[in-house]
């Protein structure tokens, strides 16, 4: 066969390929096209079979032409694919995308604002070396009152309106103090515990809930004095409310501590200038505290001449209300409206 004719047909096929390559929409179509020309049974392959009919002297020239044509096709295929990929990338980079749609939120739950405040407070005390104690919510009159130096028929009992299970015998604990007694009876000295938990009073109005949460703490050891109480409370206040928050104490009365104090912190909203929240005083009452009454220590078999201790108690609901603005009523805590709960996250 005339090698020139073969080369001419080869050129024609090359041109034909180049033309067809222009309109291929996908990479697959391009590769299919390449196969249609280059595979054994492809258009070039068929033509190549005529190579055998070429005179041996001229085969080399024709063979080279085939190789060049094939290389050119492979080259243009890879270029075409590259162009196509580039185009797709351009489209991807420039296409419209709505970034204002909401994020796909991973499912998350919430912790109750009272629990959050409770754990935050307890963490401060446990970091200082305090243990955590629990006790029954339905208590005996003895542990809730008698052992805490509330004599029978004493007006101090009027300070806490009690919900009884069996009058004079068992009741819903009115404070966390019975856990102090249980800790002193159950644990070896020195004792340093905080006791968080639910307490109950027979009160139900916009500012009182019949169930609420308290944390009480105590430290009984040799040589514990009132200055230590102030040191521990100061640390607690700085950790929970901020290092610049001042504290002050006012003498008060609790049957189980003597001397007793109420502790105020500088109002965290007005920084002491006076606002509605602090009734213009610049101070907010936050907890009650005092040195353990010797009667209480002696009542659990501790020699009050050798050991001394302090105790303090605070309302967790109140701390939570101070930390989160906008909790207008204590009742919100116990309604558990999802719209309320979802705001808080530990």
């Amino acid at each position: 066969m005339d090698p020139n004719e073969i080369i001419a047909r080869l050129q024609l096929l090359a041109e034909q390929f180049a033309g067809e390559l222009q309109n291929q929409p996908t990479e697959q179509a391009i590769r299919d096209l390449q196969a249609a020309y280059l595979s054994k049974k492809g258009k070039l392959g068929e033509l190549q079979q005529s190579l055998g009919k070429v005179e041996p002297a001229q085969r080399k020239v024709v063979g080279q032409a085939f190789n060049q044509a094939k290389q050119a096709i492979v080259q243009s295929v890879s270029e075409a694919i590259e162009t196509l990929v580039k185009k797709a990338e351009d489209v991807y980079l420039n296409e419209y995308f709505d970034v204002t749609l909401p994020g796909r939120l991973p499912l998350r739950g919430t912790m109750h604002p009272i629990s959050i405040a409770m754990y935050d407070i307890v963490d401060v005390f446990t970091s200082m070396g305090f243990d955590v104690a629990e006790g029954p919510e339905i208590e005996t009159d003895e542990f809730n009152f008698a052992k805490l130096n509330f004599p029978d028929d004493h007006p101090a009992r009027d300070m806490q309106d009690t919900l009884f299970i069996e009058e004079g015998k068992t009741l819903l604990r009115t404070h966390m103090s019975p856990v102090q007694i249980r800790s002193l009876l159950d644990r070896p000295l020195p004792v340093q515990v905080v006791a968080p938990g639910a307490v109950y009073r027979r009160d139900d109005d916009p500012t009182h809930s019949p169930m609420f949460f308290q944390i009480e703490g105590l430290l009984v050891d040799k040589g514990v004095h009132f200055g230590h109480l102030k040191g521990v409370l100061n640390t607690f206040i700085h950790q929970v409310f901020g290092a610049d928050v001042q504290m002050r104490v006012r003498p008060s009365f609790f049957p189980f501590t003597e001397p007793s104090v109420e502790v105020d912190i500088q109002c965290i909203y007005c920084k002491g200038a006076g606002c509605r929240l602090c009734s213009q005083t610049g101070w907010i009452e936050i907890l009650g505290a005092g040195m353990m009454d010797p009667n209480v220590l002696e009542g659990v078999g501790i020699d009050s001449e050798v050991y001394s201790g302090f105790a303090f108690g605070l309302g967790v609901d109140r701390v939570s209300m101070l930390r989160y603005e906008g909790i207008s009523s204590i009742k919100l805590f116990y309604e558990n409206d999802p719209r309320f709960l979802e705001r808080f996250w530990r």
């Binding site: 307890v122 446990t126 200082m128 070396g129 305090f130 243990d131 955590v132 104690a133 629990e134 644990r187 020195p190 340093q192 515990v193 968080p196 430290l219 050891d221 514990v224 009132f226 200055g227 230590h228 102030k230 040191g231 521990v232 409370l233 100061n234 640390t235 002050r248 104490v249 006012r250 003498p251 001397p259 104090v261």
Partner: peptide
């Protein structure tokens, strides 16, 4: 104490003895 004024008493941190922790169900 109450008539001397308790705000002037200096705050100090107590020494807490290292011990085996006890935290009940907490």
């Amino acid at each position: 104490a109450r008539l001397t004024g308790m705000n002037q008493i200096e705050a100090k941190l107590p020494r807490i003895q290292c011990h085996i922790p006890q935290r009940d169900n907490f």
